[in-house]
Every structure is written in structure tokens, then in C-alpha cells.
Write a protein that binds this DNA or RNA. Sequence first.
DNA 1: CCTACCGATCGGTAGG
DNA 2: CCTACCGATCGGTAGG
Lengths: 203, 203
Amino acid sequence: MSMQKAPGPVAVEEPNRRTEIVRAAGRLFHAKGYSATTIRDIAGAVAMRSGSPFYHFKTKHDMLRAVVLEGMGAINAAVALAANSGKSPRATFEAMLRAHLGQLLGAEGRDFAATLLHESRHLDHEAQAEVVALKDDFEAMWQKALRDLKRAGLIADDSHLARLFLLGALNWTVQWYRPDGSKSIAQIARQLANFVIGKPRRP
Amino acid sequence: MSMQKAPGPVAVEEPNRRTEIVRAAGRLFHAKGYSATTIRDIAGAVAMRSGSPFYHFKTKHDMLRAVVLEGMGAINAAVALAANSGKSPRATFEAMLRAHLGQLLGAEGRDFAATLLHESRHLDHEAQAEVVALKDDFEAMWQKALRDLKRAGLIADDSHLARLFLLGALNWTVQWYRPDGSKSIAQIARQLANFVIGKPRRP
DNA sequence: CCTACCGATCGGTAGG
DNA sequence: CCTACCGATCGGTAGG
């Protein structure tokens, strides 16, 4: 939309200063929150002067929108991939947990995901509607996963409330997970699967 | 500490303007976040001029501290009461869930609790340490409840991770619960108990 | 993308 | 608790 037009004074060489801004914004929004993050913080993080980010984004709000949509898109894609892996209901479920946690806690995605979870309320109605549309698909995938588990006799409750409990357990990991802690993402996913399903047993 | 001294120009009559400020601050911190909430917002909410809240609190940060400690104290007290009710492990557990959700979602406590959950990071190290100290007790209560459930043969996993999953499911309710929704707090507590334990069956 | 800048707003204070 | 105010900072813009 507002990328390069004609080669300006500097510009062009780096293909994606815009992406760097989004990444820096995500890091800062996650660390300090949207409202407490300053345009000058973001500009400084990518070695720009305070007016320059506005060459790439019209407003600070638009930066938040870019971060949040990036987060929603990434987690959606990751979980969808796991959901369609064609494994058994239990293995599929655990793969989805791993994918979700990977985005939430992994180095590549966590700033976007955390900003999605905690700063979306600062979006205007229009942008929030964009997020909700994507979130609907996302939640449907989880609902289906629970339905499949129930059909396989592995859980007793596949209601909407059950999905909300599950997503709560998942999303809350952001609050306590430490990359240098004693549990890996895969271990957490495994244990959450056991927590929800019970230890695997032969039928 | 900085209450009334001698009867100033106005003051005195209302015993607790300070409490009103804390309540208004909680409401606003919950609705807009700490950083996006202005001293002028808070002052306006209690019909004061912008300089007057500083008669009761030295800084905006101190208001946040008061809100968060109020939230932590209230949820701690409510859950402790349920934990010591002397019922069976299952009934005690469900009562604790109800108490926790009551603070998180009920009209009296939710602004404090939500501010505790989402704005504590804006506290300085000292105030954060105060919160952590109270949180340690709180988490120990939940850990004990899980231990009792396991001893009673009702759950398989009473690890720290299980406690974190449970508290995630609980605390995430703030994100989706609507007072005018179809489920009451007691119903949500009951269903979460079933989700964790499984439907009640005779041994 | 930088320089230079603007109007608005913010947390907080002095002095009563 | 109000009036009057201050210095600092903020998001954003013009003009190159």
C-alpha cells in the first residue's frame, strides 16, 4: 500500500524495513504493552528517528493491527497444519497442542501471539472484527478436535465450555512459561493432553 | 498514612473517598489498562479535579498497587474460606472454584481481580514482591486441593503443571465470561470440576 | 527516511 | 480538595 515508489534518498536496499518494524513493535508491545510503548521506542529499536516509522505505517494503531494479524495468522496456520495431519484423534490433538504452544512460547511467534492475546482490545472496532473473523475459524478447529476425541471415547465433555477451559490452560502458559525452565514445549503439550484425556490406555 | 489531619476546607464528611478512588481506578484499569488510564479519568470518575487524587495517593503507581493488593487479598480470602470448609475433597474443590470465579467474574471483585491478572507488570519490583508473597500462599492452597483430590483417587495428576493448567482455565474465564450469558458462575464451576475430575461416580 | 517541529496531553506540584 | 501551573513526553506532520 505505502511501500516504495521511486528510490528515495536512502531506502530500497533492505527489502523489508516494514517487517523489522512489525517485529520490533511486537517485541515492545509484548514487553511493555501497547499504550506504554512509544513510537520512539519502536523507531529506536530499528535505528530510525522518531518520525520515520510513519513512512511505513500511518498510525501506531496500524502497527498494532499488523502485529496482531500476524500473530493470529501464524497460530492459525500452525494449528491447522497439525489438525490436518491425518493422525489418530489423540495424536492429532497432541500435535495441535504442540503447534499452539510453539507459537505462543517459541521465539519466532511469541511476541505476536502475546500481543494478540493481551493487546487486541486497543484495536478499533474494524480491526477487531478482522481478528474475530479469523478467531472463529480457529475455535472451530479446536471444537472439531474435541468432538473427535469424544467420538473416540477419550473425553466426556466436548462442549463450548470445555473448549474454553482448554484454551485457557493453553493461553495461560504465556504467564508462567520460561524458555530456560525444566519443561520443553513438547513435554507441556504431552502433559496437557494427559490432563485432558487421562493417561493413554488400551480400550 | 495520608488520611485526614485537621478538618481541611472540605473533606472529612465522607469517611472514605480513598476507597472510592481505588474502586474507580480498578474499574478504569480493567476497562482501559493502566497505561491508558489517566489521572484525569480517575479524578473525573469520582468528581474530583485532576490534582486532587494526589491528596490520597502519592503517585498513579500507588493507586495500581492498592488495586492489585485489594484484588489479591480478596481472592485469597475467598478461596481460603472455601478451602477450609471441611467438606469432602470434591466438594471443597468445587467450592474453591466457585469462590475463585466469584472474585474473578462477580461484580464486586472483578475489576480488582482483572487488574491483578493483567496490570501487575506495571508495578515496580518492590510492589511486585508483595504480590508474589501473597500469590505463593494462594498457589499452595490450590496445590493442596489437587493433592487431596489425588489421594482420594479422583485425579491422576496433581503436579505443579496440573495446577498451572487449572489456574489457566480459571483465569482465562475473564476473557470470555459475560454476566448476561447463559451459564452462571456456579454452573461454570461445576462443569470445570467435571472437566478436571470427570463426572462424579460411585467408587 | 531525516530534521524540525507542533498541539495536546500527561503525571505531578505549590500554595492555599 | 481546588486553582493554576510546569516540564516532559507523546503521536503525528511538513518538507525535503
